[in-house]
Design a protein around this nucleic acid. Sequence first.
DNA 1: AGCCTAATTCAACGTCCGTTGAAAGGCAAA
DNA 2: TTTGCCTTTCAACGGACGTTGAATTAGGCT
Lengths: 224, 224
Amino acid sequence: MLVPQLRGQSVASRSNETKQRILNAAEQLFAREGFAGVTVRQIMREAGADVALAYYHFDSKRDLFDAVLMRRADYMNDVRHAALDAVEQRHQDDAPTIEEIIEAFTTPLLQLLAEDPDTWRDYFALIAQINNSPQWGGELMTRFFDPLVRRFIDAIRRALPNSSDADLFWCYHFLSGALTLTFAETGRIDNLSNGVCDSSDMDAINERLPAFIAAGFRHICKPD
Amino acid sequence: MLVPQLRGQSVASRSNETKQRILNAAEQLFAREGFAGVTVRQIMREAGADVALAYYHFDSKRDLFDAVLMRRADYMNDVRHAALDAVEQRHQDDAPTIEEIIEAFTTPLLQLLAEDPDTWRDYFALIAQINNSPQWGGELMTRFFDPLVRRFIDAIRRALPNSSDADLFWCYHFLSGALTLTFAETGRIDNLSNGVCDSSDMDAINERLPAFIAAGFRHICKPD
DNA sequence: AGCCTAATTCAACGTCCGTTGAAAGGCAAA
DNA sequence: TTTGCCTTTCAACGGACGTTGAATTAGGCT
């Protein structure tokens, strides 16, 4: 099948562009106010398009919400899988340290932020809200992130042999809470510290979060 | 001024009872669906009272939301202040360990859950959502919890002398994320672990969370 | 040119929203 | 019994909600 030469802009790409504009507007607004706090009309006003167009490109408000999540989930998972690949590549004979594994879980997020701050800031804020919501947390986090998370926990299990599953899962849960709050950039730490700390200071986070978490794992996950 | 003998139920106490019924319904619903995900009509249906009554007892939906938060915040802060008092009482001459301080921050929450599970479960879920929301996180957490949190950080500072403020605030931030997610009981860890772990298993949390966090503090907050 | 399909606009649907003013009920004081 | 205050009900307001069907536009194909 031949791909036709496109003069100017094809219909399909025009459609995809508006779809992305809608997703961008939705991502930003959902991140700030949550699913219920945003109306389809607001989103389409922000996207500069007619309300009905939302329902041409997506089945429903809920479907649009899922599409916002889905759009970046695969890429984010790929980046983190690649980081863990690199660690395992480096340690084909010996075992990596937990620090290296945790860093493979966290530093890709910092890289994404460095590449395209505005985009990923909103996405991470959205993930934080979902992770902490009884409504979405159980289902959506599981759906989008379980395979990656399981692989990381397996890697940590090998780095801390004979740890119990319960210890590993609980420690991952603590990691998950610390990580999502930190990347949500709610402004909380800025207020609490009277400006000593800056939510968006990624170097400060990179210097502390992986080491903090690794120390916690090390302390809890010991051979039975 | 004389307090009149009340035959049956006084007007004032009748009023306070419905007010509490409204707050209970609001707490439960806000915890599950967030501020915007709940309507005043839903709340009043759940509370078994007329819609307009919400606006007799509270100024607005937002005011009701604040009242839900405020109702338990003072008591919760008192319990945690008392726990830290006890630690400082025990260590008037020597310094307490970080473990003891962190436990004074976390175990009161477990006690509240043991006393009245249904009530506090919803409240903690609500706090978790607020803490992770860009909309509320900065302002509300600061308003309700800053004095207590500052006192705890001061105590940790004395237990880990010469730590930098930035280290202390960041480590507290990680604690905050881990703690609020853990007490939110979203069901996430149950799914992830295929039932190995149980969100509501407070013993499992008590055995791991304080030790995990203390190890993190110890590792990061070292003399300059 | 004319057709076909995909993309977009327009106008509207029924429903529910947060909120309010006025009326009704209940109970203590006089 | 009447008065007066506190609490609760009733009915409604204007507006915004999620969603839809039909009409319009735009662009590639023959």
